[in-house]
Design a protein around this nucleic acid. Structure first.
Lengths: 178, 178
DNA sequence: CGGTACATGTAATCTGTTACATGATTCA
DNA sequence: TGAATCATGTAACAGATTACATGTACCG
């Protein structure tokens, strides 16, 4: 289960709660690995059972109690071994591409709308990535090695957005000229 | 379940067997929607139960019998409605990006290898896409509407490969200069 | 008074993967 | 003799999604 390794990776930055991870999985690492809070809480428990994580219950006032998790030495080792193992890639599944296989006079307008929605989504994401880049990765060569790696992942996200934006625009042009 | 709609879409080109679909899902539509034969056979049965597909058993000599499936009018209608509905996109999950978050002196060489494997995979895929493009989509504007849609999907695949190739190369350059 | 943030979960269901199973024919 | 192609499936398990559940505090 690679979600476990994504979670362990997120814990390289220090102790956190499931709640925090859920939010971080909506940004940062989560750009590349979406997960719901239900999944995250479950995996955290499983990883603790395997002694890959250790937890600490913290009582709070005015807020619900929370559980801080951190990587154990065993978890760190497991993570290192995972990095050295074979690399899997589950490709995306995008209704939009399948829908294009169904292009007809009846649905052209609707698909143009879907393309425009997609364009807005990608534009927002790209703006966010660029914001993060300009804030934290101005001088990538001055960063420590790990942050250079994060920078490379971020730049994958950015170029991915740029490519799909230009593809969407091309589609919009072609379809609106029909 | 969107796999059903991908399968119904594949059946727009005419009757086929689960076996054929499995192979087609390794090329063509399958570029955008991977599925194993186990999944496909199951969905075909389910769709037939719902009367969205009709089947025909064909006996063969020297080969196992086969089952041809085709879209029913009900299936066609369901497919049309799906196209007009909301569009979902499950983004890819790529170990490589998570692994880059773990970049260290210990694993740099290993990640360079992983990048080079990825480059080869993408190069092969791109070559195949381009072959298909040059064979069937030389003059996209002369195609009927549906095939123009397919062409747009194909061009998404091509630009996706191109972008990730250039990203991989950039990573290889940066990491090998360390 | 309604919404959002904080914080954690269970249960049911749906999808996807891996392993296992069968059996003839053709090609090297 | 062994591998690949044709052709279809079952079963177990892993992973992801959706629905349901609880309860405080703060802001407008």
């Amino acid at each position: 289960m690679a979600l476990s390794h994504a979670i362990m990776t997120a814990l390289l930055d220090g102790k956190t709660t499931g709640y925090e991870l859920t939010k971080r999985f909506d940004t940062s690492l989560g750009f590349f690995w979406k997960a719901s809070h239900q999944q995250i809480y479950k995996v955290l428990k499983d990883l603790e059972k395997q002694a890959l994580l250790a937890s600490e219950h913290v009582q709070q006032e005015g807020k619900p109690d929370k559980i801080l998790y951190e990587l154990t030495a065993l978890g760190q080792e497991e993570l290192n071994q995972w990095v050295m193992g074979s690399t899997h890639h589950r490709e995306s599944k995008d209704d939009l591409l399948v829908k294009l296989y169904n292009l007809s006079a009846d649905n052209t307008l609707h698909l143009l709308e879907a393309l425009s929605t997609r364009r807005e989504t990608v534009e927002k994401k790209l703006a966010l990535y660029r914001l993060i880049e300009s804030r934290n990765y101005k001088n990538p060569s001055k960063l420590d090695l790990r942050h250079q790696g994060i920078f490379l992942a971020l730049s994958a996200g950015i170029s991915d957005c740029e490519h799909s934006l230009s593809w969407v625009k091309k589609c919009e042009t072609l379809l609106s000229d029909l």
